[in-house]
């Protein structure tokens, strides 16, 4: 599997578009203080202003600059999305890796837990937990990761199972390496592309869930978020303000999700060359992620090594 993934993704039209949109978002988030004239939470002196040279997207019901809020909202989305993607990936690697490397009891127990967690509807339970905690950004990351890791753990497990039978891993094992050392030094480096795919997928789901939670208003009131902007704007739908308040927030959110979908699609095509022959774009949006990565033969009935 020696493919230049980065080059392949760059050559793909979808991949380019996705990466470009993500770069634009990152630029918006990083340059928020420079690109906007007002701090996002500050009263600017006028409420319900239409867009003008002074207020690029007008002001909202409490006189905050909407353009500034949009930029700072990108920060929240990217922070929560990438944070949750990283943390849940870490959990997936730990659980999936331990299950595959240790086998036996650990494998059965962890996979049983994963099977049980996968049938729980994540958004509903996240709403419940968020209603009590009123999570800020850090807490949101932890909360979302708790619901995102099981899918990834399954994929990591199946991949580790196939990698760990390779020669160099066996060699290391004969030298007395423990499971954690084997996992970190020999198995994980081989899984780069799969892990990236899991991260992109979880990123997308985390963005969706964060927007939903803040749309319900269950996150920390101090966090500026596109979902919350939409919630606030929706109660003024009888005024004209939705044109420059609600629509930009929704469009930015949709753009983020589209960017992640495109990137994931390109990655998937790179990793699974069989898809290149035909336009089969389905799996990128399909949340049953097992189907993205082909399960290696013999995955179902796995015998732990003696």
């Amino acid at each position: 599997m020696h493919i230049n993934y980065w080059g392949e993704v760059k050559r793909d039209g979808f991949g380019c578009a996705g990466l470009a949109m993500l770069a634009l978002l990152a630029f918006m988030a990083a340059g928020a203080p420079i690109l906007s004239q007002y701090p996002p939470a500050e009263y600017t002196g006028a409420i319900f202003q239409p867009p003008s040279a002074q207020y690029w997207l007008g002001t909202n019901d409490v006189g905050q600059d909407i353009w500034a809020q949009l930029l700072y909202g990108a920060r929240t989305t990217l922070a929560v999305g990438s944070g949750a993607a990283l943390l849940s990936l870490l959990l997936s690697i730990l659980a999936g890796g331990l299950a595959a490397m240790a086998g036996g009891f650990w494998d059965r127990a962890l996979m049983r837990l994963v099977d049980a967690l996968i049938v729980i509807p994540p958004v509903i339970v996240a709403i419940l937990a968020a209603a009590y905690f009123r999570p800020g950004i850090t807490m949101l990351i932890v909360l979302l990761s708790a619901f995102l890791w099981p899918d990834g753990a399954r994929m990591v497990r199946s991949q580790v199972l196939s990698v760990k039978e390779r020669m160099h891993v066996s060699a290391a094992r004969t030298f007395g390496a423990g499971w954690l050392y084997l996992l970190l030094r020999h198995v994980i480096p081989e899984l780069g592309p799969v892990l990236t795919a899991i991260m992109v997928l979880n990123f997308r789901r985390a963005v969706f869930m964060e927007a939903g939670l803040s749309f319900l208003g269950v996150s920390d009131p101090a966090v500026i978020s596109w979902g919350k902007m939409m919630q606030q704007a929706l109660s003024f739908s009888y005024l004209e303000v939705w044109k420059w308040w609600l629509i930009p927030a929704g469009a930015a959110l949709s753009m983020t999700i589209a960017a992640l979908t495109c990137t994931g699609f390109a990655l998937e095509k790179t990793m699974n060359p069989r898809l290149k022959k035909e336009m089969r774009s389905g799996n990128a949006c399909n949340k049953r992620i097992d189907c993205i990565v082909q399960r290696p033969a013999g995955f179902e009935r796995y015998k732990p090594y003696p």
């Binding site: 927007a211 939903g212 999700i257």
Partner: peptide
Amino acid sequence: LSGLPDFF
């Protein structure tokens, strides 16, 4: 369509 959140 799949890129748009349900509430949007």
